[in-house]
Design a protein around this nucleic acid. Structure first.
Lengths: 98, 98
DNA sequence: TTAGAATATAAGTAAATTCTTAAATAATAA
DNA sequence: TTATTATTTAAGAATTTACTTATATTCTAA
């Protein structure tokens, strides 16, 4: 895979509402899959598949903690990425208000 | 559309190789559709459809210039967004090298 | 050693996206 | 007016992605 393909893969992985929601949960620290399962209104299997896609894109990493598996952001810059996307949307609204 | 949905839409729009390529062309300034047509190896109709998706996501804007239509980035922060995604990929390779 | 909890995977269907081809529109030049 | 260039839109087929259900795996505890 070329670098460009890997970059596209990151964007693609973030471009889904459930995966975006998962990442938002992870912004304030690692979370057990079991917690995500409680908070995200989709089937356990579906969640697991989305986690795999995020992991495969290099956005999250997982770690075994006792009985459970904890997922966390694989890179601090993921936060920046999300924040900038939000700023772009905010800018858009501000321009409309002018 | 909620703000989150709009953010997801940005990521989704960037998560496609042709659209990512288009954005890369636009990083160094506005471009005529006719130029993009020459440089991007896909049908003109397909290109036009991808441009619409990018525009709809608020990533690019278009402007009529004489006979032609020029597309450009709708917000300077799009550059930052791309750069950070690239940095995330670079970091990954650096970690592998350690 | 079996039972149960947590998580992942497989397989198939449903839904969404992408691409191709053809036609439409809009503006200008002849 | 008619033809031409630039670009968009429509429609449908092809491909990809997502979701559901069922099953598998891996620990640990009883």
């Amino acid at each position: 895979m070329t670098k460009d393909e890997l970059v596209v893969k990151i964007f693609k992985a973030l471009g889904h509402p459930i995966r975006y929601k998962i990442i938002n949960y992870l912004l304030d620290g690692p979370k057990c899959v079991c917690i995500l399962n409680q908070d995200i209104e989709f089937s356990q299997s579906n969640l697991s598949q989305h986690l795999r896609i995020l992991k495969d894109a290099g956005i999250v990493k997982s770690e075994k903690v006792g009985l459970n598996i904890h997922y966390s952001l694989a890179d601090d810059k993921i936060k920046d990425l999300i924040n900038i996307a939000r700023q772009i949307i905010d800018n858009k609204f501000e321009k409309l208000m002018e």
